[in-house]
Design a protein around this nucleic acid. Structure first.
Lengths: 191, 191
DNA sequence: CATCAGCGTGAATCTCGATTCATCCCGGCG
DNA sequence: CGCCGGGATGAATCGAGATTCACGCTGATG
């Protein structure tokens, strides 16, 4: 009982922090505001986290903890599929995962340079893409292409995600178009 | 005489700020450090800029002032060329321009969300790409593709640039590969 | 019902970096 | 040479936000 209450408050604090950081940025989310929005006093924050930094770290930690499995699952999902369907499914699952973690995503995107250690999501993502591409090369679906192809895919996905998130529109809708584009390039239907 | 000295100091301050911001981030570049690195006293900064914010703004301003023309030139350079050579040249010129403004680029990339007003480079870039693509569509070289194609191109370029800059390697080398990839996609048969 | 432990509270304090300003320094000029 | 004005200086001041802590409140315990 006691335990659940405490946990609820903890989550409220993290939610408040997430919301405020997403809105104002890491630096301008003051503890007083976080406390107010979480419905507790400033001092209370220190009963849950040793200091501001620990709070922030905990925020990234928990969000990543829920997000990362989905990313890994997306990478793993189509392991038996052929290259193209696997890539297609991967991108779709990935965008779905992003979709349900918009706030975290915003934080991760905007603060990746400040907290590189707090999230290995980018590494996981890159690794997953490389993995899928390597399989594609092995089965002869695509020619080997150095790291450029992986960069192009992650870069394209990221650009689309950022744009759609800022525009407030859906993500999943673009999944197939991205794959089409990546596989066959701009000249596709003009051939 | 007097004038040149003053200008030299001003540039030293901006260089120092650029360096420190690139290294530690916008927020953690303290004026004391900037002053020390520029070889002046803190108070001196205020003889050149009204306050910290003005200094930062001036930094972005000057850097953009040298960078933007090159970007615009790159967009304009191949206006008479056909789509593919134009795109090819654009990417090459663009990477060259990036190459000679590495620090600024780092700032622009990492702080685009903090100072959206301080640099319209991203907008210019996006506009330039859209422009080139529109011409390509008009001449039938590529099919119309919503905004996805533009996102894919800028996203790919950005990913490559970021990776190469972090790895400390050259940029221009990738220009043609990027275009090849964008035009013909991953399935392009190994040549 | 008295006591107590533990948590919540928010005003007081501490920190740290931006900003100010009294003072210093130097090169030009009578 | 001595005087002056404009910039340079950096210690003192300010401000904003993080951190602390003495003081309640509450619910459990005997």
């Amino acid at each position: 009982m006691r335990r659940t209450v405490r946990e609820t408050v903890r989550l409220a604090i993290l939610d408040a922090a997430e919301e405020l950081i997403a809105r104002h940025g890491l630096h301008d989310a003051a503890l007083v505001q976080i406390a107010r929005r979480a419905g507790v006093a400033v001092g209370t924050l220190y009963n849950y986290f040793t200091d501001r930094d620990a709070l922030i770290r905990a925020l990234f930690e928990t969000r990543r903890a829920t997000f990362r499995p989905r990313l890994l699952a997306a990478i793993d999902a189509g392991r038996d599929l052929a290259f193209e369907p696997r890539l297609r499914r991967f991108v779709r699952d990935l965008l779905d995962a992003f979709e349900s973690h918009r706030s975290f995503l915003k934080l991760a995107i905007e603060n990746e340079h400040l907290k590189p250690s707090a999230s290995n999501t980018p590494q996981d993502l890159a690794a997953g893409v490389r993995d899928i591409l390597a399989a594609g090369v092995r089965e002869g679906a695509i020619p080997a292409a150095g790291d450029l192809l992986a960069l192009a895919i992650t870069g394209t996905i990221k650009a689309v995600v950022v744009q759609r998130i800022q525009a407030g529109s859906e993500l999943a809708r673009d999944a197939d178009a991205i794959v089409d584009f990546v596989l066959d390039g701009a000249r596709r239907s003009a051939r």
